[in-house]
Design a binder for these strands. Structure first.
Length: 339
DNA sequence: CGCGTTTGACCAGCGC
DNA sequence: GCGCTGGTCAAACGCG
């Protein structure tokens, strides 16, 4: 039995892949377009946000927009909806690169595998998972090993949870949301043109995030934020945090990332993920503190790599909220889905 | 028996 | 217009 299935027993057996989107209000899938190019492989080991999307997490982001939806919708509706929403809605993704021997990293959510495909240029199959924690939750993720280094597991999250998440899963979800919002806010007019790796946007969005650890990318159809947990930030790359040694590998025990985040962050009690997203104006001020706190949490946690995600997560979310005070990043999953 | 995974087929977008 | 590729579907299968 797979790793995640052990952790999570079906919350809603009725959620059958394939039927899900059919029973879901099509209006939610207003922007039906290609969702391909998910995994933006950044060989240098970074999180990349591929640009291309449609819905934004904090806008009408109700989630994944199956390509097939378009055929199920009235062409006219699709056309209209698409033209209107596509220009505004972007689907951001967050991918996490981490060293792991496990087939999938546990992130606190409940997933059901609904497909697997061999991706071009990569001998390792790409697995597709759908969140089953909530009925009709649009969040999906793709898991694939890096072709160059099979010890690296690349997990790409997409979508916005429409259900309460356990604290352990909150961090990851927030990261996705924040990243998407961040990208959205900065790329509304022309994401493709504005965003580029290490571009002004990326840097402004992640001013304190080591380029080698987190990057924004619009090279692909979808804005993608990539967190690279396989690399060690140098002191020069970690302006606010102390240089840390790179963990030899991702947590062998495969403790769930959010779990670690939760533990690491919560235990520090200096800030929380939610906090990081709600910091708003004070965000800039407390950013350094938060990063330091995160660093402390990270170094204190044996699962360094995973904990690092927490730090980056908080940074991303924090900075984002700071840059876009109007962009209510909902750390409470989908609650912001304003139809 | 229920539930999750596997896997081949199908569909749509994109590039040539 | 055609072929390639990615993403999803859904029946079959396996496991607890």
């Amino acid at each position: 039995m797979s790793f995640h299935s052990v952790l999570w027993k079906a919350a809603d057996p009725k959620i059958v892949p394939g039927r899900l989107h059919k029973t879901t209000s099509l209006s939610q899938w207003s922007a039906a377009k290609s969702t391909s190019h998910v995994l933006h492989r950044d060989l240098s080991g970074r999180i990349s946000t591929t640009n291309g999307g449609e819905d934004s997490p904090d806008q009408e982001f109700q989630g994944w927009v199956p390509k097939k939806v378009s055929k199920m919708m009235n062409p006219r509706d699709v056309d209209q909806a698409s033209s209107e929403t596509m220009s505004m809605i972007k689907k951001a993704r967050v991918s996490v690169r981490a060293r792991s021997d496990a087939s999938m990293i546990s992130d606190g959510c409940q997933w059901r595998k609904y497909g697997q495909k061999m991706a071009k240029g990569n001998p390792c199959p790409r697995a597709y998972y759908r969140c089953t924690m909530g009925t009709g939750c649009p969040v999906r993720k793709q898991v694939q090993r890096c072709a160059e280094d099979r010890t690296i597991l690349v997990t790409t999250y997409e979508g916005h949870h429409n259900h309460p998440l356990p604290p352990a899963a909150m961090a990851m979800a927030s990261t996705t949301s924040a990243a998407a919002s961040m990208l959205l806010s900065g790329s509304m007019p022309s994401a493709d043109g504005l965003i580029s790796s290490n571009s002004f946007l990326a840097r402004s969005a992640l001013p304190n995030c080591p380029p080698s650890l987190a990057t924004l990318s619009a090279s692909a159809p979808f804005p993608t934020v990539t967190l690279d947990l396989t690399r060690t930030p140098t002191s020069s790359e970690m302006p606010l945090g102390q240089p840390n040694q790179l963990p030899p590998s991702f947590p062998q025990n495969m403790m769930s990332v959010p779990q670690i985040l939760g533990q690491a962050l919560s235990s520090q009690s200096k800030f929380s993920v939610l906090d990081s997203f709600q910091g708003l104006d004070s965000a800039t001020h407390s950013l350094a503190d938060k990063v330091n706190a995160a660093t402390a949490a990270v170094t204190a946690d044996p699962n360094f790599t995973a904990a690092l995600v927490a730090a980056i997560t908080s940074i991303i979310g924090n900075v984002h909220s700071n840059n876009n005070t109007n962009n209510n990043i909902t750390t409470r999953n989908n609650s912001d889905s304003n139809t």
